[in-house]
Design a protein around this nucleic acid. Sequence first.
DNA 1: AAGATAGCCAACCGCGTCACA
DNA 2: ATGTGACGCGGTTGGCTATCT
Length: 231
Amino acid sequence: MGRSPCCEKAHTNKGAWTKEEDERLIAHIKAHGEGCWRSLPRAAGLLRCGKSCRLRWINYLRPDLKRGNFTLEEDDLIIKLHSLLGNKWSLIAAKLPGRTDNEIKNHWNTHIRRKLLSQGVDPATHRPISDQFSNSSNTCISLERRGDVREGISKYSGGVLQDAAKREEYSSYNSTQEQQQHKFEQEVNLELCISLPNNYLQQDSSSKRKEVVRDFLGLSSAMLDYRSLDI
DNA sequence: AAGATAGCCAACCGCGTCACA
DNA sequence: ATGTGACGCGGTTGGCTATCT
């Protein structure tokens, strides 16, 4: 059984708020204060649901709202907070006086995300995109080596590290394993370069070359065995 | 000048959480 | 302990405006 609707939809307005509705809402809240959103519309003489009133007040009508463009300092703070908190817009908004969670969320999606991407930073993980690519591509494919390093990378790759404790764990993991990981990535990258080895290319007759290419691709031998790949 | 496209942002929707009976 | 109602949050949508072709 689903949750009952928060209001009688047939008798409520939807869409953009009119000036008159705004004035009614402001007047009511000035007189009675915030809260009791469920009963507010009727008391204020508004044909809106309580949710809609609350949203309108919090995101647009509240007197302490700071309108206008975000400053560079605000952008930086949002980025830092997002790296710690993830998409917890209300928590981020709590640290930026005069800004709403909705406003910050919109600003993030339309400006900051793009800014980070243009700087080569993944907005979800706050890590360089090149790192993401090397990690994700390298760990998708399992070669012969199945050591701890690979397991560690798999554990953290591809996901969003929104939990601060996990991030800390990850960063300490990184610091202790970094060299091994780097070495591992280099090795895997080399092994993933698909090209014919020199000894194959040195075959002189074309028919012989076709045969060895077929052999190299694993069509006649088990050299490239898809069963050994973890996708 | 007009249509197409992209960007922006206010508002909506559904779900999770909490308080209370 | 459980059910219900209210609130709050985050994702998504829709419409307006600006820019491009």
